[in-house]
């Protein structure tokens, strides 16, 4: 037999007074915490950690076996191992933790549980974003940790160059931008797979192609393309890096089967790159939030 607690004299008033939903800024970290716990218990978290440990192990083995120019100085070492891999890893972890963040709420019907609570949709969106960012950042931190362990082995504990710190900072800004876009695409669809595929294709292939076309054909600085900005993650290890708001152009010529091939490499200035990435984060977050606010749970 059910034993519901006895009636209060004025259930509406007492409930509304006692259990007024906490303000937005209190609810966001609460939801983020529960969402992060879900990530930390998920298979994907440990699968991704496994992949990163594997990659780190391969890098360690290759570096240890060949040594040579890779370990001549810390800047070259980190510029190659971190600068070369961080952009790719950012996309990987962002897609993995953000690809289904919103679409999955519709697809798996978990959204009906959350939306039965007195929370604003923006609270859910931002809480999930923070959790996904924390989980993805943990993966990047793991990779960085493996590289630092290598660096300490080769160069000693004081040999982490400032360029690594700046590059890591840029990578974490880039992570925010990619996650922003991932959440936006995830809000656009009610099927998780679309968000995963679209973000991965766009960030791994699409933006790079766009960057090349704009610079090679239009001879314009591709400031609107995020891969142009993410190039700063590795360019900060270059002594000739441009720190300002103007990017740099590098014209490279080569021969393939007696045909002359010209390739233009463009990289944003560091300040310019940060602005572009923050711009992407802001715009995609606003668009994603707006999509989620309007989306019907039907």
């Amino acid at each position: 037999m059910a034993t519901i607690s006895p009636a209060t004299t004025d259930p509406v008033a007492s409930s509304l007074i006692r259990f007024r939903a906490p303000p937005l800024l209190h609810q966001i970290p609460k939801l983020a915490r529960y969402q992060l716990r879900e990530y930390l218990r998920s298979r994907r978290f440990y699968a991704m950690a496994g992949i990163i440990v594997f990659l780190g192990t391969v890098l360690t083995a290759v570096t240890g076996y060949y040594r040579g120019p890779l370990v001549t100085d810390p800047v070259t070492f980190y510029g190659t191992d971190w600068g070369g891999a961080a952009s790719f890893l950012v996309v990987l972890v962002a897609v993995l933790f953000g690809g289904d963040a919103i679409a999955g709420e519709f697809q798996n019907k978990t959204g009906y549980f959350l939306m039965g609570l007195p929370v604003r949709r923006s609270t859910v969106y931002l809480g999930k974003f923070l959790a996904a960012y924390a989980a993805a950042a943990a993966m990047m931190g793991l990779f960085l940790g493996i590289l630092l362990a290598n660096g300490i082995f080769y160069f000693g504990s004081r040999a982490a160059p400032w360029q690594l710190g700046l590059s890591a900072l840029l990578a974490f800004v880039y992570l925010g931008a990619v996650l922003g876009a991932t959440f936006m695409f995830s809000s656009l669809f009610k099927t998780s797979a679309y968000g995963f595929v679209l973000t991965a294709l766009l960030f791994l292939i699409g933006f790079t192609l766009l960057q090349d076309y704009i610079s090679a054909i239009a001879h314009a600085q591709p400031w609107m393309v995020i891969s142009y900005a993410s190039g700063t993650i590795s360019s900060v290890f270059d002594p000739t890096v441009n720190w300002g708001l103007n990017g740099s152009w590098t014209l490279m010529r080569g021969d393939i089967d007696k045909n002359v091939v010209v390739k233009i490499y463009t990289v944003a200035g560091v300040a310019e790159g940060i602005l572009i990435m923050l711009g992407y984060l802001l715009v995609t977050s606003l668009v994603g939030l707006s999509l989620f606010e309007r989306e019907d749970f039907s």
Partner: peptide, 9 residues
């Protein structure tokens, strides 16, 4: 709509 609860909870 018989919602789903996060499975790890």
């Amino acid at each position: 709509e018989s919602p789903e609860i996060y499975p790890s909870l």
